[in-house]
């Protein structure tokens, strides 16, 4: 069982009455020549790492290698605990989690790239926040990770997930598309709704440049992971309410890739433009 596009994925889901996560799990077993028990065990390990990463910096703020980050997750958590959060519980928790993961990542802690290290906060941020707020099982979240994997695989296969090739829209944009699709399945939506949500994210984050200060995976990466959670949540909500997209996922992914290749070199992870080239950022990093 394999698929090369979103359309083929939806056809497989329809023909076999399967969720996206089930198709992706089946594909992994067949092409990876392994069995579902082993694959799920390996994904369970990834989930355990994600769970640690969203929690650790809340207890113990971590200073990043480049010194641009540290303590953001704890601040958000305390703000929320004081009842001052204006985002609501799922989003408030989701952005705290996402920023926590980037805090762990930038201080040489253990994370799961999803699909990259720089975008590793979005998927666990949203899925673990939804789990917490809705009392969902670990098995349900595991399934959601396979769903996210299906969307990310299509992006890797048919476009790119490298900021150096396609800008931030390809990294955090794809991470958010993965999270949106997974959130839809987690909350009971259909495969069509999942890919519609992924489309919505790619559309809303289209053109976002990759401009890390000092060339490091720190700033603005961390706050963009939080905005990735927000984008994913908006898209999932729209899809679950029955709003359809006019553009199919495959076409939107191709559009993202085309736009990505047109992003100037200075704005593709080279730290020569955007946030990285502001006078304040330059004075912070003191490099070049």
């Amino acid at each position: 069982m394999d698929f090369k596009s979103g359309q083929e994925l939806l056809e497989l889901c329809g023909r076999h009455h399967m969720k996206i996560s089930e198709v992706m799990l089946r594909r992994e077993c067949e092409l990876g020549e392994t069995d579902a028990k082993k694959v799920r065990a390996r994904m369970r390990r990834a989930l355990a790492i994600m769970r640690d990463a969203v929690a650790l910096p809340v207890e113990k703020p971590l200073r990043s290698m480049g010194g641009l980050l540290g303590g953001e997750a704890k601040k958000l958590k305390e703000h929320g605990d004081e009842g001052k959060a204006i985002c609501g519980s799922v989003l408030g928790r989701g952005i705290a989690y996402a920023m926590a993961v980037l805090e762990v990542n930038s201080s040489m802690g253990l994370i799961v790239a999803a699909p990259t290290a720089g975008s590793s906060g979005v998927v666990p941020g949203l899925l673990l926040a939804l789990q917490h707020e809705n009392g969902l099982s670990d098995e349900a979240v595991l399934d959601a990770l396979f769903n996210a994997g299906a969307v990310g695989y299509l992006a890797m296969r048919n476009a790119t997930v490298a900021g150096a090739v396609g800008g931030c829209q390809a990294e955090i944009g794809v991470a958010s598309a993965m999270a949106a699709s997974a959130a839809v399945e987690l909350m009971g939506g259909t495969p069509v709704m999942s890919l519609d949500a992924a489309t919505t994210v790619l559309m809303n984050m289209l053109g976002l440049v990759c401009d890390p200060v000092g060339g490091l995976v720190e700033y603005p990466c961390q706050s963009r992971n939080a905005s990735g959670v927000a984008n994913a949540l908006i898209a999932a909500e729209m899809a679950l309410s029955g709003i359809r997209q006019h553009i199919p996922f495959d076409e939107m992914l191709a559009a993202m890739y085309t736009v990505g290749k047109k992003i100037p070199y200075e704005l593709r992870e080279t730290a020569l433009g955007g946030c990285a080239a502001t006078p304040s950022a330059c004075s912070l990093c003191g490099g070049c």
């Binding site: 201080s107 040489m108 799961v112 790239a113 699909p115 290290a117 996210a148 994997g149 890797m156």
Partner: peptide, 18 residues
């Protein structure tokens, strides 16, 4: 040569950059 789900949700790694 196939892209595994663990190429997407993974690698498990020490940050900050793959």
């Amino acid at each position: 040569d196939f892209i595994s789900v663990f190429d997407v949700i993974g690698p498990n790694m020490i940050g900050p950059s793959s």
